[in-house]
Nucleic acid binder design. Structure first.
Lengths: 253, 253
DNA sequence: CTAAACCTTTACGCTACGTCAAGGTCAAGA
DNA sequence: TCTTGACCTTGACGTAGCGTAAAGGTTTAG
């Protein structure tokens, strides 16, 4: 099936303008342009659009969406986690607002006009909190990491640290994979170090570690191109190398 | 006390640009302009700004704010009530989104990459539901029930079969788990049938099946409460029972 | 007296499109 | 065959709430 803009628009529920905009920003290009300059979309584009709309519904920005759909599953998950974190912050902020609005209404209805001072005091408190959230970076530069970290730790809780640590380990895996691959030997020291990093990385998201699951995952990496593409980006054949190294590490054949 | 833009900006916490903007749109005019063209604000303006910022913090639009602060108290209350209503709608929408994002993450983390089709089906269902809620009445009145139902069916599109099949298998798992659990024996016929259903369900989304991965997943189900809650909802201890059944099915210890 | 600090207006940038406007293309009917 | 109307195109302005220069005038401290 092939569709022009407005045909696709109808079946997908978005406007034609939206499709042209997605074309313009490179988020969703038509399959081809016909001789009259019309945009023609195929099944592939329909599917992609559906993915896009799914994420859009989750209030992911179009920029983030284009990042997400062009990345392998693992990084998609990472992005989603970050998004999840932000959504929860947003909700808790909304909770506070709703609370304040309700109180304001009650006060007004009760004929007890809040004094401006009081209003402003509550408001300033919130401001301080928000400033820390918004300008943490700048403040960090000015006042040093320790102060900010302490306050951030309080505010953000533990999972932010975890998140960053995990990202770091993920990057280490990349560079290790490169070096290990150059040895050409999955049993080399470098390769085994790589596997340990990989295990460490898994532990961030896996609630329990088992050799079998690790081995199964290694197999899946090779079988599923969504994963293999991820590691083959570093070096061609990197995925298989990683799998072999994992198998050796686990004492498997 | 009199203040220039940036002085007022400092004591109020907003930017100079913001104050100029508020002047521009007529929300907050300076008390006077001095001979050099500088904006000069007095105490009255400081108080007004604080009110403005109070409402802004509550996510009231600047346009609504200017309406509110120029109206008598009882109409202010009305406006606030309306705003309160909208905020609550916003929050419940956010709740749904957060829920969906969490589910998506869980699915992905469980090594169960959702097929895009399925994602979209879920999303489309929501769309249909939303449309029904929003416009259902009007459209039904205008075009009649048949048309609406037909268009809803269309909207659900082609892969409806797949989606429904998967959903159905998922539901079968639930009822099977209940019956199997009642036998008390993970090696019972019912329990093994359950495992087969579970495998079938996995195949909808797993690109490749391996015993190791299946076993690893079973372990994870038990260890991670995000999963265990899901199955324990059916019967207490259901997750462990499922794991044991899977292990037996796979010939594992 | 000069440099820094502070003020002004003008104007483009951001998101994710909606909404004309001016003009080319295509299928169907007179 | 010509016209009509339903399509399609690109271009450009508008939205909210400012951030961020740029280009230039004013005030103040040393």
């Amino acid at each position: 099936m092939e569709y022009t803009v407005n045909q696709l628009a109808k079946i997908s529920g978005v406007s034609g303008r939206t499709l042209r905009y997605y074309d313009q920003i490179g988020l969703l290009k038509p399959a081809r342009i016909n001789s009259s300059g019309y945009r023609i979309y195929g099944q592939k584009e329909v599917d992609l659009l559906q993915q896009i709309l799914f994420y859009r519904e989750l209030e992911v920005s179009l920029e983030d969406i284009s990042q997400i759909i062009n990345q392998p599953d693992f990084q998609q998950t990472e992005a989603l986690k970050k998004h999840f974190f932000n959504l929860k912050k947003k909700r808790s902020r909304l909770d506070k607002i709703i609370d304040t609005v309700e109180k304001t209404i009650i006060n007004k209805e009760g004929g007890i006009p809040m004094k401006d001072k009081d209003k402003f005091e509550g408001f300033k408190q919130k401001l301080v909190e928000e400033n820390e959230q918004k300008y943490g970076k700048e403040i960090r530069e000015k006042y040093g990491d320790k102060t900010v970290d302490a306050s951030n730790a309080k505010m953000m809780g533990l999972s932010e640290e975890d998140y960053q640590a995990m990202t770091k380990v993920g990057e280490e895996i990349f560079s290790l994979l490169k070096r290990a691959y150059e040895t050409g030997d999955p049993s080399s020291k470098e390769a085994q170090e790589l596997v340990e990093k990989h295990k460490e990385w898994l532990m961030f998201s896996w609630p329990s570690y088992s050799k079998e699951a690790h081995a199964g995952l290694a197999d899946m990496y090779v079988a599923d191109e969504r994963f293999s593409v991820y590691y083959d980006k570093v070096v061609q054949g990197g995925t298989k190398f990683l799998r072999d190294a994992i198998f050796i590490y686990l004492g498997k054949k």
